[in-house]
Simulated scan of single mutants.
Amino acid sequence: MVFAHDTELSLAAVVDLINTDDQGEERLTDPDVLAAFVARHRFSGRHERTEAELRAVRALRPRLRRIWEVDEDEVVEIVNALLRQGAALPQLVRHDDWPYHLHATPLDAPLADRMAVEAAMAMVDVVREGELRRLRICEFPDCGAVLVDLSKNRSRRFCDSGCGNRAAVNAYRARRAAQPRA
């Protein structure tokens, strides 16, 4: 494990959230899809299931994606702004079947605020560990999805959308095409 368990879960949720905007194709299409996202990533607390909440979560994505595109100093500016705007006050909590972990906003804070602060808290760990190079953009042509490389040797190059398989198939086909015909 590269980071604490809750940090890795938060990073996975951030990646998944950012990638719901798939090069202009909207995957968070309605409040029910957002509710499924919230359930899948086990966000606790207030969830209104409204169009306004959906718009607020969608508006968060570009701010989070920017973290993958800038240098460390600007990452810190973004993270600090998210923490300030969310009025973050880190506390250890235990709920459901989770062991103690950090929450930095009250459970009744708006969902988008809790998502922003949770993402920022995860990025605090990434910055403090000097591991920003683990935040990557998929190398498959025309993909653009973000990923977090949690492999030991920092070798992950492709997102979870099948790009690694497509790259392997393309490489295989290129090798086959380069071989002389018998």
Rank of each mutant, 00 (worst) to 15 (best):
M1D: 09
V2N: 06
F3A: 01
F3S: 04
A4D: 14
A4C: 02
A4L: 10
H5M: 07
H5A: 15
H5Q: 14
H5W: 12
T7Y: 05
E8K: 05
E8V: 09
L9R: 14
S10C: 07
A13T: 06
V15K: 05
D16M: 05
L17S: 12
N19W: 05
T20Q: 10
D21V: 03
D21S: 08
Q23W: 00
G24C: 01
G24Q: 04
R27Y: 11
R27W: 11
T29P: 02
P31L: 04
D32F: 10
D32A: 15
D32T: 12
A35L: 09
F37H: 14
A39L: 14
R42H: 02
F43I: 05
F43R: 01
R46P: 04
H47D: 06
A52D: 15
E53Y: 10
E53D: 12
R55I: 15
R55F: 12
A56C: 09
A59T: 12
L60N: 13
R61M: 07
P62A: 12
P62W: 08
P62N: 08
R63S: 12
R66V: 06
R66M: 07
E69R: 10
D71Y: 03
D71G: 15
E74T: 14
E74G: 10
E74L: 10
V75L: 01
V76R: 15
I78V: 12
N80R: 12
A81Q: 15
A81W: 07
L83F: 01
L83P: 03
Q85P: 04
Q85A: 14
G86W: 02
L89S: 08
P90H: 08
Q91T: 09
L92F: 13
V93D: 09
V93L: 08
H95V: 07
D97L: 13
W98R: 12
Y100W: 13
H103I: 05
A104G: 15
T105V: 14
L107N: 01
P110E: 13
A112E: 09
D113A: 13
M115Y: 11
M115D: 11
M115K: 10
A116Q: 11
A116M: 15
A119W: 01
M121I: 11
M121S: 07
A122F: 03
D125P: 04
D125A: 13
D125I: 02
V126T: 03
V127H: 00
V127G: 00
E131V: 00
E131R: 04
L132M: 00
R134Q: 04
R136C: 01
I137F: 03
E139T: 04
D142T: 09
G144R: 02
G144P: 00
A145K: 03
L147H: 01
L147R: 03
L147N: 00
L147I: 00
V148M: 03
D149G: 00
S155F: 06
R156D: 06
F158Y: 15
C159I: 06
C159D: 11
G162P: 09
C163A: 07
G164Y: 06
G164H: 07
N165S: 13
A168V: 12
V169S: 14
V169Y: 11
N170W: 14
Y172Q: 08
R173N: 11
R176Q: 14
A177K: 06
A177W: 02
A178C: 09
A178I: 11
Q179Y: 02
R181I: 08
A182N: 12
